[in-house]
Design a protein around this nucleic acid. Structure first.
Lengths: 235, 235
DNA sequence: GCTTTATGACAACAGCGTTGACGCACCGGC
DNA sequence: GCCGGTGCGTCAACGCTGTTGTCATAAAGC
């Protein structure tokens, strides 16, 4: 087998499927995103994607080397959409906050793709533009280069890794997610005070807190630390 | 089917396998961890685990309801091993720092397992002890309950998510890791200053920074923010 | 030593990603 | 407007996965 996948630009014949649809990389990625959004992350399998497209599953392999390749394309589409919507205000702290929250939110809407993006460093156009953007925010805010670079690194990895963590929870089947919630509610809330005094003392707060993402709080702490560093630099 | 799994304590008959091994939940978890460490996370399947144990794969279902249940047990074992080594000093900031770095390091020593398990709430003994420990550090440091709980959440999720992120890089095949890193360096180093001025201005620093984990810096910023909150509370 | 029953073994099922072979129908050239 | 080469959709199959119903057997308790 020489090479099954034909690069997107060099495609010549557009042969319609038995059920009439005309395939394309774009259409496949869109359909994949739709499938994830409608029926959950677990619904994205090659076979189901094939039938959703009205094509034989194996036809997808004319467009992507394997599932991994396909999911990377989906992830890239996600990055593009995220950056497209975001608008800077000029105030560094507000901008980083809104960008971080937007990345986190967009990725959680498509958990499966989020998991892959964090694993792979793609180095595509959108990614490089985001690096430039974030670095620009920090340097123009007055951070020295070394500091700006370090804060950029923390910001990006924090956003991505939390997105992946929270997305991973969403990719779990419903049953185990329910199990987790119940684990917190029943197990932790009922720990005896003599063996686990701190858990017992804070149980209600703890259960409520663990039910949501820690990212907003983590982002806020990180921004606060950065602001404090900036004051230090300016003084 | 009433209930296939017998709780660990109530097990009475220890019938050896056809190939002579005597099964137990403990042995299964240990073997799972060994498998993951030796052959990667993808190598952990029920069937392979069965043959590694010298037993029929279906025998595992006498000990765990399903793969998910097994994975939770593996996760808890990892937490336990980490906590076993760590020693507190009594100074909250130093303790959280050392514990965070240790979690991060331990999980990176088992990258495959970290990826599989860092997102799960196990509700098992080791995990509950770790919650108690960290909450104790914060509350005894003087954080109010609500604050302690929130900081605990940020601390734990940040340690785990960064560990997973950094572990993911380690699990990539060597070839693609090298190729991607080099391509990445060359791309960023050669970005023209007119389109990407900020990247161009910081290129060397940027490349150096991106080569290592952002977790230590992230942890330090988080601790600084927490310390600042504590001062605020005490005043 | 007999009965009970826990538990390991076996076989089967549905679903998965992936690929080699095949042939239809589209395109460029005439 | 037809013809040939081939791009690409289809089919069938492979080997893998998790899981479960059924059965047999060895260990435990008497």
């Amino acid at each position: 087998m020489s090479e099954r996948v034909v690069p997107d630009g060099e495609r010549r014949r557009r042969r319609p499927t038995k059920r009439g649809t005309v395939l394309s990389g774009e259409l496949i990625v869109e359909t994949a995103l739709r499938l994830i959004g409608e029926h959950g992350a677990a619904a994205l399998t090659v076979r189901r994607l094939g039938t959703a497209l009205g094509a034989d599953p194996s036809a997808l392999y004319r467009y992507f080397h394997d599932t991994d390749d396909l999911l990377l394309a989906v992830a890239d589409e996600l990055i593009g959409r995220t950056l497209k919507v975001w608008r800077p205000t000029g105030e560094w702290r507000a901008d980083l906050r809104s960008l971080g929250l937007r990345i986190h939110a967009d990725y959680q809407a498509h958990p499966q793709a989020a998991l892959l993006t964090c694993t792979r460093v793609t180095g595509r156009v959108h990614e490089m533009r985001s690096v430039e953007t974030i670095l620009g925010i920090l340097r123009e805010a007055g951070f020295p280069d070394a500091e700006a670079v370090r804060i950029y690194h923390v910001f990006v990895d924090q956003a991505l890794s939390f997105a992946a963590l929270d997305a991973a929870v969403l990719t779990l089947p419903k049953e185990s997610r329910n199990l987790e919630e119940r684990a917190w509610r029943e197990r932790y809330a009922r720990l005896p005070a003599d063996t686990h005094p701190h858990v017992a003392a804070t149980a209600p707060t703890l259960v409520a807190e663990m039910g949501r993402s820690a990212y907003p709080a983590a982002l806020e702490m990180m921004l606060a630390a950065a602001a404090s560093r900036l004051q230090h630099v300016r003084a």
